[in-house]
Design a protein around this nucleic acid. Structure first.
Lengths: 287, 287
DNA sequence: TAGTGGTCTAGACCACGTG
DNA sequence: ACGTGGTCTAGACCACTAT
């Protein structure tokens, strides 16, 4: 799976290469006979009967994903209707629907009955708290104030480079900041971003921006965080952390090491957060 | 949603109450006209046009869930084929498919192409690690040895009762145990179980049992853990914990407070775990 | 060979949100 | 009234697994 044929880059509009019965090892395409009115659809179907097969709807999903990635449809935009996509890709509406179903399950798009299907964005309330799991013991989840301590370019240390899948010494942007909830310093973040994707990111931009950092990244740098993987530990506060978070040295802190990924599962951010969990907790659901 | 009409308990076999056009505010059921060959299906459809509506496939899903809950199909069993269920409930195969799709997404059943659809069980490797997120820094995830310290019945303290949705003083079973990974004490668990569901649970049974505790619960007590919610914090080891986990007093530990639910989102277990995270970490994926 | 889930299509109707 | 996603059906064929 995943690596799909890319015969028709970008467009994939009508008038595509003919077909003569899809040899795709996947779904239906009767190619002949049968009582009803089925025609050989195809388009999006690979030109070569390569050893790489995948269901039609997966190919459609890949094509839609590419349009999302290329910025043809931007966060917040409505994507074309199912009927429209069906005719664009020359498949049935049901096939498009199944592709979109999966994209919706992965939170890349969101369906809204009667309105359309929209590209998700980190501005939405719903999405915000997918990536910030810290909940206060009392009161509603909220977004704290961010205080940027530092934002500079440097050459990636070996460990960070490994996680970002780049070479040691490649350019990265390092950010250090403190998140404050109702006046209390609660989170100390140390962030490394892929240098290539974040040219022009400065402490000023970060400071001026109100709202989730990921919303800034998606709006200003065209980099959308799709998913992340976290490793969580309990650690003791060192002197630096203790000072910045106003807790005694040695206090237990939650250490959250995150790697975030964009389209194509490419890592673009490494983040190490230290959380004070006396009045907040990290919320997780197993299912 | 959720609370569905239960007119036809358990069975819902053919020869059900007639129908004369489903007044269900949900899906299709043309009830008349149209060119093709659609008949009013129904069954599983409520007798009264009550204010509670839900799509047909949701009703089917509820009926299947009830059969799972009642033990008609036990963990590990294969459930009837889609065609069989379709004729049992008098709906199309596609509708059953959609119902099963959702159950599979919730991990209540698992589909296996060419074989059938099976009730999931805590014996399966895949499922095991859904509820144990502790991963070693080196090597593969594994299941440690469990050492039961205590297992006794007592009356629920207020806090536990609240979480289990019972009254203070109601009967609960309390278990305390230590999990050891490659010789190192790593997890100290304190567990409270709904007394009513776990009559006859003893330290011997727990000790003799090899494998995940939840597998024992499902096999011996007919209580299946479906999902859980966790609150995670960093805390300092007190004297008891320090002694049992062989760490200095004051060491940072991961505190994991879990509430587990069975069918119908009924809480049946409260668990507080203290994890040593020097050679292990808690793995979590945000998506 | 037979049975199961997986894919694909085509068409109908419903519910929602906007004009 | 119209367009959008949501539900439902019916039938065909494919791919995997067991016998």
């Amino acid at each position: 799976m995943s690596s799909l044929p890319t015969s028709l880059t970008g467009a994939a509009l009508p008038g595509a290469q003919d077909s003569a019965a899809a040899t795709s090892g996947a779904g239906a395409q009767p190619s002949s006979s049968s009582s009803s009115s089925q025609q050989p659809p195809s388009t999006a179907v690979h030109a070569v009967p390569s050893p790489t097969f995948s269901p039609l709807y997966q190919q459609i999903k890949a094509l839609i994903t590419r349009s999302l990635q290329s910025g043809e449809w931007k966060p917040g935009d409505m994507i074309p209707s199912e009927m429209e996509l069906a005719s664009r890709y020359k498949v049935s509406q049901g096939t498009v629907r199944k592709a979109i179903d999966e994209l919706a399950a992965e939170n890349l798009v969101a369906r809204r009955q009667g309105k359309g299907t929209f590209v998700t964005t980190h501005h939405e309330d719903v999405v915000k708290f997918r990536f910030l799991r810290l909940v206060p013991d009392e009161g509603e989840p909220h977004y704290g104030a961010s205080h940027v301590l530092e934002c500079k370019r440097l050459r990636a240390p070996a460990e960070i480079a490994r996680l970002l899948d780049i070479r040691t010494g490649d350019s990265v942007v390092q950010i250090r900041r403190v998140l404050t909830f109702s006046g209390e310093s609660t989170v100390l973040d140390e962030i490394w971003l892929l240098g290539a994707n974040f040219k022009g990111l400065t402490a000023e931009k970060l400071t001026e921006w109100k709202g989730p950092m990921y919303a800034l990244f998606e709006a200003e740098f065209g980099t959308r965080m799709i998913r992340a993987s976290e490793k969580i530990r309990a650690v003791a506060a060192d002197e630096t952390a203790a000072a910045l978070l106003s807790v005694p040295v040695g206090s237990p802190l939650l250490s959250v090491e995150r790697v975030s990924y964009t389209y194509g599962d490419r890592p673009v951010e490494v983040r190490r957060g230290l959380y004070v969990t006396t009045r907040h907790y990290y919320q997780n659901d197993l299912s």
